[in-house]
Design a protein around this nucleic acid. Sequence first.
DNA 1: CTAAATGCAAAACCTTTGCCTCAAA
DNA 2: TTTGAGGCAAAGGTTTTGCATTTAG
Lengths: 134, 134
Amino acid sequence: MSDSLLQKCLARNIRMTSQRGTIIKVIEQSEDHPDVDLLYRRSVELDNTISIATVYRTMKLLEEAGVVERLEFGDGRARYEESGDHHEHLVDVETGEVIEFFDAELEEMKRAIAEKMGYDLVDHRLELFGRKKR
Amino acid sequence: MSDSLLQKCLARNIRMTSQRGTIIKVIEQSEDHPDVDLLYRRSVELDNTISIATVYRTMKLLEEAGVVERLEFGDGRARYEESGDHHEHLVDVETGEVIEFFDAELEEMKRAIAEKMGYDLVDHRLELFGRKKR
DNA sequence: CTAAATGCAAAACCTTTGCCTCAAA
DNA sequence: TTTGAGGCAAAGGTTTTGCATTTAG
């Protein structure tokens, strides 16, 4: 089975502090796609000495370490999720709900398209915005 | 053949002013994906009375009218392009160059995926980030 | 011990807005 | 003439940063 976020950070020699530990725990326990402010508020519940600057600095660190992914849904602030199996996002335009999905054929197609244009795909992002049928 | 951006705006009864005319001309002549500041600087060259607030207001107006598209490449500011044939973007991670492409199969796949999840696709966004092979 | 991390507040960005003036229809 | 648009500057929201202090290793 796969390592916890904390283990991944330790494996990368990220210096561990109580604040980072708290933020990492918050990320691990988040099932949604929180923005920094939400991560901050959840972290403060566990350790009321944490400042939002630390949350920003930690998220940047974790992103650069490749253990979290930064998402943008077009609302002007970054949201985060733990890195893991790659998947895409479908945003329900009426409720704001974010649904994760994965489609192997789609992944391969993206790789092939970049290939055809003479590029190695290093990253990619797909967001679908949909309205629930009824 | 298709209407110019100006014609599309007039057809939608967008009140025309000299500033809007200038900004529209700048968009028409832009072959890249300018952000607001760049649009502003290009507009000022043609009419030095234009303020950046007007550029922001005009881009919002044109976006809501559906005649321009707002793009986000993850650098924290909006970029724009004239609406037209739908296409995707591949960003060269080394040069920042943005290459447009279209793939009908990919489009259909996105629609089908949303469909399968019980959604009507109302919008979608795909960006590939690649490194040129050599 | 020493280098790095934190807190706090200020600053830096990008974007929006209030208000008064000006211009399009 | 009337309603909407523009300019300016201030304010808003998100993210970054300088600096003094604390802490991990």
